[in-house]
Every structure is written in C-alpha cells, then in structure tokens.
Amino acid sequence: MIWVSWRRQRPQLITLLAMLVVGAGVVVLLRSSMLDSITSSGLTECVTRTTQECSTNKSAGDFRAEWSTRLQLGQAAIIFLPVLIGLFIGAPLFARELEQGTHVLAFTQSVSRTRWMLSKLVVALVPALVVLIALQYLVWWWLTTAGVMGPRVNGSFQVFNFGIEHVSPVAYTLFAFAVGAFVGVVTRRTLVAMIVTLGAFTVLRFALFDVVTRVMTTQREVVTSGLSPTASRDASLVISQGYLDAAGQPIAPDKVGAAVQACKATWTPEGQQEYVACLAKSDLGRRYADFIPESQAWQAHLVDASIYGALAVLLLVGTGWALRRQS
C-alpha cells in the first residue's frame, strides 16, 4: 500500500527533493559569501554584540544594505513554505482522486479506506515535513551567521522570527496540509481546495496571532515612574504596560492620559524630577509591564504548535470521516 502511495506521489516528492537541493545549495552559497563579506569588512565583532561602533560603522551599514533583503527573503521562504505545502500537496492529495474518480479503484479493493488514507497522508506529509525542517534549520543557520546584524537582532518574539523558529513551522505545515486535505475531500475539487486552503490559512494565522499571549502566564515587572521597564527594552514580549495605583491595580488608560496631560507642563528636557513628582501626586507613582521573557519563547512555540496541531488533528479526523462517508 505504501508503495502505491509512493508511486502515485512520486512527481510531488521529486519536486520536494529538488526544492531541498536547490534551497540548500542557495543557502550554503549565500552564507559563505556573507561570511566572506563579514570577514573582509572586519565586522566579526559586530555579529555577537551591538556596540556603538557597530551601529555607526559605514561598512556595517553597507553590510546591512546589502544583506538585509536577502536574509528577509530567506525568512519569507520558511514563512510561506507551510502554506505552499498545504496548497500543492495537501489540497490535491484526495481532491484529485475524487475529481478523477480514481478513488473508486482503491475503494473497491480489500484495503480499508482508513488505511488507504493514512498511507497517502504519511507518504505525502512526512517528506514534506522533512524538507521543511531541513530548510528551516538551514535558514536558521544562515541567519545565526549574521547574528545581531541580521533579523535575529529583533529577538525571538518578532513576528517573522517567531514564525520560522522552533516547532511553529511544522505546526503551520500540519495545519495547512490538513485544511487542504479536508477541504479537498469535502469539495472534491482540487482548485477549490487550493483556494480555500490559502484563504483559511491566511485568515487563521491573523486571527490566532495573539492567542499565545492570552494563553500564557505572564510576568510583571514594576518600576518607579520615570524609569522604563527593562522588559520593554529587551527582546521580551510585552503584553501590556501602564501605571499602577496604590493598591497595585492597573489604572485605566484614559485616567492615565488625563494625568499625564496635566503633568505635561512640568516636563523639561533637563530634569524629570518635577514631572515624576507630579505623576506620583496623581497616583501614577509606579509603572508596570506584563511580559513573557525571551527565554520562555520555547513555551510560546509549544502553545502555538499545540493550537495548530490540535486543529490539524481535528481536520484529519474529519477527513477520515468524510472519506468513509464518501459515496
């Protein structure tokens, strides 16, 4: 049975393999060329540290001008790969069989529909995931080489960084693939399945964008007014911030706005004591920030992945059910 699925999936598998080979070649070449550029411009230091010199250095500026677009394209590839897999592998997987009526051949043999489905799923999905993970790590390896001169400077929670790290791409792929497979079985039309997959994936990615931040427990950092919380300066993910009243409760933004407006007159560029004292008088003595530290990014990825993974499992169960009902 696996052989049948493999043989029928062969063109897609060859395409995937070609993508892997070309992708790996391109990344390896770009990385080595980038590494040459770093060494020849004497920027090796700047890869690991953001120093004053690194940010003003002309060759560092040239480096950024030359490489930032390419590095972002590398990220974009990993961002879009899941939906591409869903579109071109997940959506046609069953839709094409149903469209062409070839499912009847399998359905009238002794293999059960569930086993037929599973074998097709495994043969289509596993290689796609392997290629995705391989490319994901290649791109990560390339981005790491650029260090803080590349997109990694924005930290793990930056949208594009988050989308290409840890288990998130795998989960997105599972989800896109499952949407494609499910819609393909329900509509029995490859083109419809592809369009719906693209739409559903895009909508859900936006809709579930901040679910992680609502699900995870956050830490609270409190500082006196006039200082800004470190969380809002480092790569932590700040969920909310503002002022606390004497009871330790966050103050409503409109009240804060009014108070800040009132104290604005006391603000001078030279010193802020008066301004801070004014704020303290209006009960805005302390600032707070609720955040998730970058060190916990892996937890955020797990939450993210379990949401998409659970949706994917539901959709695949639905696919199996729809196939069994198929007549």
């Binding site: 049975m1 052989w3 043989r7 399998a106 043999q109 002794s110």
Partner: peptide
C-alpha cells in the same frame, strides 16, 4: 503491482 498491494 499497485492493485495487488491493495488486496489481501
């Protein structure tokens, strides 16, 4: 071969 492999 394909049809054969789908049958007991």
């Amino acid at each position: 071969r394909a049809v054969g492999s789908m049958n007991d």
